[in-house]
Design a binder for these strands. Structure first.
Lengths: 140, 140
DNA sequence: CAGCCTATCGCGAACGGTCGCAATAGCGGC
DNA sequence: GCCGCTATTGCGACCGTTCGCGATAGGCTG
C-alpha cells in the first residue's frame, strides 16, 4: 500500500503540509523535535504553523508511519517508525543518553507481559536514573 | 532531624509558602498535580503564585521530602517521598493505571544495573502500553 | 471539470511549566 | 530587638503543546 493509499484508507487526506512533515521526519538522521520539523517544512511551505505540524505528526503516528519518544522531561522527539525498536537510558546528572540493549529490553517486556499481562511500549519514554560515570563519582 | 533543621541544613529558608506546599503534598491521599496543590495552599495563603509552588516542590524534592512522577504525557504528579517505591503501568487505550509489582520492578532494575551499570529510577515515569483488558478486545 | 462534503489549515487563546527581575522577608550576628 | 545578607516571592514573559474556530482545499460524484 502506497502512502497515498494508506492515508486515504483511513479517511484522511494527503495535503501538501502532511507530505512535507512526513518527508522531514523521514529525512532526519536522528530523533527530531516538532520545531526542527516546522523549520524544515517552512523552507518549502512558509505559512505552516506549529499546530499543523503537531496535528500531522499525530495523524502520521496513528497511521504507524512515525513515532514519538520522551527523552528528557521537556520536549517530545519524533522519528520514523520503521527503525529498529529501542529504549533509552537518560542520566539525570549529566544528561547522557544510552540505548538499552535489545536483550535487556526484551527481558523487561517479557516480564511485564508474563506477570501483569501488559504489553509495554518501552521505547515510548526514556528511563531516567544515574549513569555509570556519575555513579562512580560520589558527588563532585 | 526536624523539618526546620533539614531545611536550614541545606542553606534554605522555611517560609510560610514552603511549609504550606509540603503540608498540601503530605495531606493528599494520592498523587496530586501542582495546580491542585496551589489551589489548596491558596485557601490559607491566597497570594501564592504557580511559580512559587513549582519552585517549592523542586526544593522539597531536593531535600528528599517529595517526589514527582509522569503518569500520562501531560501533567506531573507529586507525592510524599516516604511512601513505598512503586512504578506505574498506564494503558494508552483506556488510560487505566496499575502498580508494577515490587518483584517485577526489582528484576527490571537489577537487569539494568547488571548489564548497563545504570541505576534506574523506575518510579519516575510510567511505562505506557496496552493493558490486559484492551489487549483482549481486538479493536471495538 | 464543476460542485459538494468535510478533513485540514492558520490563527489566536489557553495550559502546564520555567525563567529573569525587582521587592520582600527568613535568619544569623550583634 | 535591630541590621544586613541573600534566599525566596510574585509578577510577567516565554516555551512547548493543545484546542476551538472560521476559512480553505482535498477528493469523490456526476
Amino acid at each position: 500500500m502506497t502512502l497515498a493509499e494508506s492515508v486515504r484508507a483511513s479517511g484522511r487526506r494527503l495535503t501538501v503540509q502532511r507530505r512535507l512533515v512526513l518527508d522531514a521526519v523521514e529525512r532526519a538522521r536522528h530523533h527530531v523535535t516538532a520545531d526542527e520539523i516546522a523549520r524544515r517544512v517552512r523552507t518549502r511551505f512558509p505559512s505552516i504553523g506549529p499546530s499543523t505540524v503537531y496535528r500531522n505528526l499525530e495523524a502520521l503516528e496513528a497511521l504507524g508511519l512515525v513515532t514519538h519518544t520522551h527523552l528528557d522531561d521537556r520536549v517530545t522527539r519524533w522519528h520514523r517508525a520503521d527503525t529498529h525498536l529501542h529504549g533509552h537510558l537518560v542520566c539525570r546528572v549529566c544528561g547522557r543518553e544510552t540505548e538499552i540493549r535489545p536483550a535487556v529490553l526484551d527481558a523487561m517486556a517479557k516480564r511485564l507481559r508474563a506477570e501483569h499481562r501488559f504489553e509495554p511500549d518501552l521505547a515510548h519514554s526514556a528511563i531516567v536514573g544515574i549513569c555509570r560515570r556519575c555513579r562512580d563519582v560520589p558527588s563532585s
